[in-house]
């Protein structure tokens, strides 16, 4: 791996999607050590921007953008965070530069600052295989790939929930598909969660877990439509979530932008943790969801 980097000041450990970590590191400088099922590495971070990266996978050592892309390919990774002083930052940068581990591609670096937003059409997202490699300074355009997250406007629904069909605006550096992976990864990591799926129009769009959810989403959608009918007889406000509790566990259905999430859990799951994550979904959307 790269030569000995400064130790830095240990801040803490966590499990999270790496991109999520960066979004919350706008004022951080230091090294983030990363462990994945297939190896370990580190990312030098300056104010939310990855400056250098190295990753050892068995006998292979990935450097720079290749290493960074590999880390991003995991929905959730184990992170150990160490803060650097200015001097330590300079030294680490020099070491990574000498080992060829500096990240140079502009496209892989999220814009600093949480307020900048990129607008994406509701059903369009970039492919998730990670930011493309570029030669230093080279400008690359990314043709948007059609993603199969279906929109219900095509189904002609006219409930109050159709009001959610607004263009989705996400924080810089994230697209809908990245966000889906991050969210599903976070939920799946919670103790007691067995499987999680994003679905729409009776089809599972994306799912993770050790239980096959594809055949359940049709039933989940039926429950959802039945629950929405409650709004036809009384003033309810918009739908937040539905939880079915059975002796063997729980099934939770909640909106996810223009789709829905279906979460299958064991009986002892901490619903509060799941609801906390679910509550972040409208927050993420409200941050930039356009109304035009």
């Amino acid at each position: 791996m790269t030569g000995p980097l400064p130790t830095g000041f240990f801040v803490g450990e966590m499990q999270a999607p790496f991109r999520w970590m960066l979004i919350h590191a706008a004022r951080f400088q230091g090294i983030i050590r990363v462990q994945t099922p297939d190896g370990e590495g580190h990312v030098l971070v300056l104010k939310g921007t990855p400056m250098g990266c190295s990753f050892r996978r068995g006998r292979d050592e990935l450097r720079g953008e290749a290493a960074y892309r590999h880390i991003l390919s995991f929905p959730v990774v184990d992170l150990s965070i160490y803060r650097y002083t200015g001097e330590e930052m300079d030294e680490a940068t020099r070491i990574l530069l000498e080992s060829g581990s500096i990240c140079t591609g502009r496209d892989m670096i999220p814009e600093p600052g949480p307020n900048r937003v990129d607008t994406l059409p509701a059903v369009t997202a970039r492919a998730v295989e990670g930011p493309p490699l570029t030669a230093p300074g080279a400008a690359v355009s990314h043709p948007p790939a059609e993603k199969n997250l279906p929109s219900r406007d095509m189904a002609g629904e006219s409930t109050e929930f159709s009001a959610e069909e607004a263009p989705v605006v996400l924080p810089s550096g994230l697209n809908l598909e990245d966000l889906a992976y991050l969210l599903l990864g976070r939920i799946l990591r919670l103790p007691g969660v067995q499987a999680v799926s994003i679905f729409g129009r009776g089809k599972s769009v994306l799912s993770f877990g050790n239980v096959e959810l594809d055949s359940l989403v049709v039933l989940a959608e039926d429950m959802l439509h039945a629950a929405k009918e409650i709004s036809s007889v009384m003033r309810t406000g918009s739908f937040v979530h539905l939880t079915l509790q059975i002796p063997s566990g729980k099934v939770i259905v909640a909106p996810y932008f223009n789709e829905y999430l279906c979460i299958l859990t064991s009986p002892g799951v901490n619903l509060g943790q799941i609801r906390k994550i679910l509550k972040e979904i409208p927050d993420m959307a409200d941050d930039g969801r356009g109304t035009s």
Partner: peptide, 26 residues
């Protein structure tokens, strides 16, 4: 809602449902 919930429970191999909770904004 309860009928659809029962259908889901049956699909999951359960004869009974313990509870259904539906949350709206209001």
């Amino acid at each position: 809602v309860m009928a659809e919930s029962r259908a889901m429970a049956t699909r999951l191999g359960q004869e009974q449902i313990s509870m259904v909770f539906v949350e709206f904004r209001e």
